[in-house]
Computed example of a mutant assay.
Amino acid sequence: MNKLLSFLKYVLLMSVSAFLMWYALKELDFQKMWAEFQNADYGWLMVSVVMGLLAYLSRAMRWQMQIKPTGHNPPLRNTYNAMMVGYVANLVFPRMGEVARCTMLRRTDNLPLNTGFGTVIAERIIDMLMLLLVVGLTFMVEFGRIRNFFLDLFSNKYATLEQSISSLYWVFWVMLISVVVVLIVGLRYLSLLRKNSLFRKAVQFVRGMLQGIFSVTKLENQFAFWGHTLFVWLMYYGMSLTVFYALPATAGLGWGAALSVLLVGTLGMAAPVQGGIGVYHLLVQSTLLLYGVPKEAGMAYALLAHTSQTLLVVVMGVISFMASMLRGAKPVEAEHSHTSTQAHELKR
């Protein structure tokens, strides 16, 4: 039954991506778009791919730094391989990559799954902060265009949202009251819960996850960690900018336009569909229209940027998966010892 539900969910998400791609392409002149590809300077596209490689390597180094304070020290090749396998998994099924990358490091370095999840959660929080910084910069530099873009995007949904706001308030209060009730009951019967093996396992899992989340506060070199974070996002920005130069229609766009594309492109890639397919293309094409770029050229840009980076992820992810499988799994004694230590701390 679970396999059937997973399959149906996968088909549904693929259908959404296919519909959005059809919607983005249905009114385009394919001869004009093909002319854009023929006149493209693919050297700039290769520069973008190299920036992508550097960004992934830097992310792997940053993740390795996060893991080290938890008592585990996987080599860079293992963190890189696990991360790239996770990115490939996200292309197959959204959000499966977080599970895949943590499972890979558990296999190669005995990193507990809960601790691995904790470090990934911390990574996502940091990326959210960086995205908010990009939002602020973009609105400062390109306020007029971006404001109009988002107003047009959400204006049709505003009436429905306004009608549903009272329902959202009710949902909020019901959830808040439920959480309070659960906390009160949990504190009241805490002594009994501590005797329950499932509760002890849950507490142990949460502790390991929190250890991963707060590993950022125990880094040996905070400067290097945040330097990697800044470098990664500068590479993302550079990837958006360099692809501009690959097409005649976008070659004259400036750094402000690249900020706008980075913002909406990141939002598109975060959509719960495989690899942001369809959502990314539609958002980027709509954004470039604000800068006077024709629809065909805007879609050509979106296809070049998205396809090149997707192929990079697939190629490097497959190589990383094969390298990890050939290297074999690490014996599990270390993880058992770590679990026993956590259980002893819980009893105390």
Rank of each mutant, 00 (worst) to 15 (best):
M1L: 13
K3G: 04
S6P: 00
F7E: 05
F7M: 14
V11R: 06
V11H: 02
S15L: 09
V16Q: 11
E27N: 14
L28M: 10
M33K: 12
W34S: 15
A35P: 00
Q38E: 12
A40L: 10
G43M: 09
G43P: 07
M46F: 15
V49Y: 07
V50K: 04
G52W: 02
A55L: 09
A60W: 03
W63E: 06
M65N: 05
K68E: 12
N73F: 06
R77D: 11
N78I: 06
N81H: 15
N81P: 04
A89N: 03
A89Y: 07
G97A: 06
E98A: 05
E98R: 11
R101P: 04
M104I: 13
M104D: 02
R106T: 04
R106N: 15
R107K: 11
D109Q: 05
L111A: 04
P112N: 09
L113N: 05
T115E: 14
I126A: 13
L132R: 01
V134Y: 02
G136S: 13
L137A: 14
V141K: 13
E142L: 08
F143C: 06
G144P: 08
F150A: 08
L151E: 15
D152P: 03
S155D: 12
N156A: 12
A159D: 13
Q163Y: 00
S164L: 13
V174G: 08
I177P: 01
S191P: 00
K195A: 09
L198G: 08
R200P: 01
V203T: 07
R207G: 14
L210Y: 09
G212Q: 05
I213D: 09
I213N: 08
F214L: 14
V216L: 06
V216K: 06
E220M: 03
E220V: 08
N221F: 07
A224C: 01
W226Q: 05
H228I: 11
T229R: 08
V232I: 15
Y237H: 12
S240I: 02
Y245H: 12
L247W: 07
G252D: 11
S260P: 04
L263D: 12
T266F: 07
L267H: 02
A271K: 07
G276T: 00
G276M: 09
I277C: 12
G278L: 04
G278K: 08
V279R: 00
Q285F: 01
T287I: 14
K295C: 01
G298K: 00
M299H: 06
L303C: 09
S308W: 10
V313P: 04
M316A: 10
V318H: 00
I319F: 12
F321K: 03
F321R: 01
M322A: 13
A323Q: 15
L326V: 07
R327I: 00
A329L: 01
K330T: 06
K330N: 05
E335Y: 08
S337Y: 11
A343H: 10
